[in-house]
Nucleic acid binder design. Sequence first.
DNA 1: TGATGCGATAACGTATGCGATATTGTGCGC
DNA 2: GCGCACAATATCGCATACGTTATCGCATCA
Lengths: 235, 235
Amino acid sequence: MTFAASQSRPLAASPKTGEKSAQVAYATIKQRILDNEYAPGTAVLEQALANDLGLSRTPVREAMIRLEHEGLVRVVPRHGMTVLPLAPRDMTEIYQIMIGLELVATEQLAARQPSADEIAPLVEACDAMAAAMERDDLDSWAKADERFHLSLVELCGNRRLAAMVMAVWEQSHRARMFTLRLRPKPTDSTREHREVVEAILAGDPARATRLYRDHREKASGQMVRIIEQYGLTRL
Amino acid sequence: MTFAASQSRPLAASPKTGEKSAQVAYATIKQRILDNEYAPGTAVLEQALANDLGLSRTPVREAMIRLEHEGLVRVVPRHGMTVLPLAPRDMTEIYQIMIGLELVATEQLAARQPSADEIAPLVEACDAMAAAMERDDLDSWAKADERFHLSLVELCGNRRLAAMVMAVWEQSHRARMFTLRLRPKPTDSTREHREVVEAILAGDPARATRLYRDHREKASGQMVRIIEQYGLTRL
DNA sequence: TGATGCGATAACGTATGCGATATTGTGCGC
DNA sequence: GCGCACAATATCGCATACGTTATCGCATCA
């Protein structure tokens, strides 16, 4: 079955020379998952994906293994790779983890008494959120929100922690995108973020973590409520 | 260099029929890492490992990819797979994560007001720790301690969280084994564990988390101090 | 009509082959 | 004696090949 070389090069992700095929496969598939191009539950077989990407099964398999371990897909031997659907329970798990780890990040960062320079990314993200809300631009707001959270965990200096938060963030990406316009407008959100930043800058770990926790638990509650309310049991 | 087929079947991990080679490779290599059979820093090439395990490079590669993503090894293309050495900084990172996540687990578990039956594994682990200390059997104590922590995160019901804690637990396994006899004897430890269990059983999340945090931060401080004191910068 | 056994077939898991490339060793110039 | 260029070679990444096995369709039977 070698007829299918219709696509002799990857469809996405710059096929620059020197870029390893397995990396390209990984990046391409991941992008597609985050962009919701594979509906959760639908199966994709190794060979099909390999043909699609213009590669052999080997690098595709390796990419699939990585994605499975990141919690984005499930691979069942003769049923292919399927994007994991998100149940409300998954969102609860993910929020618990994010809150736990981001609290550690917040605490560590505040305890370090960082300079204004150092936490500039956080301030920038807050500004961007505010500006986006001004324009009623929810997509930009979501991007800025993401920048805030990922900057926070990167700034704390714990690389393992940052990687873990990023993993669950990606797992829940689709759910956030779906519910973005169903949730109440994040009007207070910017203020809450700013307050956390202030506490960090003030070098007050206790206040920073308390504020952050309140903020996150509110967000978590909203999210889970919306998902259940709309019956989105298989996002 | 094909002379090395001296071992035509896996050395460890029951080669039962139906067991996939990649799984065997993964399990065997991981066991060896945890048993400290590969000194951190020494390189193992794909082909060498494949010969050693009596397999081809393909399943070995897949195992290596998994192990790399679990944070146990690093794979550098022409320098083989090397077990990651643990610097004091790594231990700090790992403890921060463990504390953060285990606090979430403790809180959730306590909030659920579990029955005595449900938390039996925790009590059993405490008993085993006490018995081991009685016998001055540090190895058994360490095993019981491990059971306690892993039971806790499993009981909390958040499977992602449990998997994450297990990952960092494994990463730090070697360091714990090395320092087991360098640390002060964990005499208070059993009591501290029991107090946490009591608070959980009492359904008091605030007390449970406070106690747990104190316990863990003490342990973390001890561990890092010992590592630095003995100059174990590359465990 | 629905369940069951069996053969066809497709997908997988692993082995092997091949071209590309980084690394190592060697010889030459300085 | 030291450094550098170049050749030799070992390792890797990917493609392909092959045997195994689960799945599906179909026929048979209750």
